[in-house]
Amino acid sequence: MIEFRGVSKQFDDGTLAVDDFSLVIPSHKTVVLVGSSGCGKTTLLRMINRMVDPTSGSILIDDEDIAGLEPVKLRRRIGYVMQNSGLLPHRKVIDNVATVPLLEGVPKRDAYARAMELLDTVGLDRSLANRYPSQLSGGQQQRVGVARGLAVDPNILLMDEPFGAVDPIVRADLQQELIRLQQELGKTIVFVTHDIDEAFLLGDEVVILQVGAQIAQQGTPSEILANPTNEFVANFIGVGRGKRRLSVDGSVESNGNDLVLVDSAGHAAGVVDAPGGVIANGDSSPKSRSISNKTDQAGDA
């Protein structure tokens, strides 16, 4: 469990990036911090591994105040994945994955064996182990980044827009891979993105942030979609107007079991189950949503 208690951060140039922020991030869940650039979401993420120290307030991991922990030690037990992978260009893939275990003094043979397993875990061919990062595609580099983040088997994984720099098809691929991994591993993932679709797809819980890291709304994707607290959130997630405001298109004949949905601009956006012309009332528990449902949701948007 990660807890922010009244955290503020003022940078040397005077900008108040984070203003009195409090949040509890439960263990073994994926929590997505989402907001426009400059809202302080990356600063929040970097406070968790003490890349940035708060000006006031405190951050606790499993009830332990991290201000009292040695930053280097703390970072070595938290996985970190960033945009553009952040891999060491002068180290081969295998060495990149094994970076932290090797820093920790794990024997090379053991670290390599574990790194090889991690390549399997993230869906990379073992033959890539001896390549340099520049010889890999963007998507492959990102997978190596994830493997490196998992190398010390951390409880916490911090992900800073990890899929921001890859093309949409590869991104969708990586997102599915992360969902699969998370089902297997059950880490506490804190994920930062500016992409609300990505947030709804990956997040067990989504935190929508405004400037100064003010929480506009937090909740499960369904809760937020069902009850956006204000106009900012409604606009941000696109239910106010735009592609998430869907309505039944009465102008199209249906076979009786499906109705066509259109977005606010009138473009066809999908279909909804409607046996006998009546929209079915689905199970509303978010737990029951399968991965494929989640994907459809993102695909529609």
Partner: peptide, 10 residues
């Protein structure tokens, strides 16, 4: 980027 990520992983 690389310096930052090196710092971040410890």
């Amino acid at each position: 980027d690389v310096i930052q990520s090196a710092t971040a992983v410890g």
